[in-house]
Each structure stands twice: as C-alpha cells, then as structure tokens.
C-alpha cells in the first residue's frame, strides 16, 4: 500500500534492492550489499530487498518509493564492465526503459522494472544503479578479492548516499 502524498512529504521513502546469485560468487555482491544495508542503513523510511533476481512484483514497491537504489554485479569486459577492472563500482542515474531487448528472456533489468512501475502503477521514483564489476562467476559462494574490496567502497558510497537528505516535491 502506497503512502499518501502528504505522508510521503513527511517521510520520503528509499528502497534499496540488491540482487544476484550468491551461489555464483561475485554475482552475489548485490545481495551482500543489501544484507549489509539491512544492518547498517535501516531506519524508518528505508526499505531493503535482497533477491536472487529482479521480479515483476517489485514494480509496485518501486512505484511507491521516492528513491530507488539498485545494486547489481557485472562481468568485467561486458556491458557496464567493459573496459573496467574487477572491483570497480559504477554509479549511474537510470530512467525507465523505452524498450527491452527481447532476447533477455525472464531476466528483467532495473530500467524495465522502472518502466513497469511508471506505466502500471504511475510511480516514477528517482533511480540509480550501482554496479560492481566482478571477475569470478563460477559456482560457489563468497566474493573474489577485488570484489570484496569493491563491496567496502560500495558500502561507503551507500552510506554517504543514503544519508543525503533530499527534498521531495
């Protein structure tokens, strides 16, 4: 259930979604970050989800938030990870997708979720995506050395970021 506009003014809500597969080593960095956030950043107005993947029903929660922070992992040399070294943390402001790649299958991107949140539930929060570039996506748990360091940097960024008070329209 969404808060009324008045309630939201008093209490702007932040949603943090960390996702990935913790059984595929560095892919789990988003979930690790969300767990950390649950312990260190939890306060009224902050909701934190950890999930193995983005799922359509998150669209409603996203539409209800004022700000959304996604945390994901990326393979070095591919996509966001292109030309970047493992452990680097990439920050982007993201907008709802205009289109999605049909070949992605059941894999949903943050941009697609934002598009769903806005088209279906009429909510368009400010959104950003932190991506940690990883190197080891093999079976197993635990993060590689550079990504573990990246996680610490990400934690600092998240702490600084989420403490910033933003005025809400």
């Amino acid at each position: 259930m969404c808060l009324s506009a008045e309630q939201r003014l008093d209490n702007p809500t932040l949603l943090i979604i960390g996702y990935g597969n913790t059984l595929r080593r560095d892919d789990g960095v988003g979930v690790e970050a969300a767990r950390w956030a649950g312990e260190h950043l939890a306060r009224p107005g902050v909701r934190i989800f950890e999930s193995h993947q983005l799922v359509p029903e998150m669209a409603e929660d996203i539409a209800c938030a004022d700000r959304v922070v996604f945390i994901d992992a990326s393979v070095a040399g591919l996509g966001v990870g292109k030309g970047r070294a493992p452990g680097e943390v990439v920050h982007e402001v993201i907008k709802p997708a205009d289109e999605s790649d049909p070949s992605l299958g059941h894999h949903i991107t943050p941009q697609v979720l934002l598009a769903m949140a806005s088209a279906i539930f009429g909510g368009c929060p400010e959104a950003e995506l932190f991506t940690v570039v990883g190197s080891d996506f093999d079976h197993g748990s635990g993060l590689s050395e550079p990504v573990a360091r990246g996680l610490s940097r990400l934690q600092e960024l998240l702490r600084a970021h989420t403490l910033t008070e933003r005025s809400c329209p």
Binding site: H52, G79, L104, G105, H106, H107, F137, H139
Partner: peptide
Amino acid sequence: CSTHALGQMAM
C-alpha cells in the same frame, strides 16, 4: 536454471 549466472545472452 536456478544457478545460471548473468542472463545477458543475445539471441
């Protein structure tokens, strides 16, 4: 496919 890694494969 519960253990598949990144789904970013093109058709």
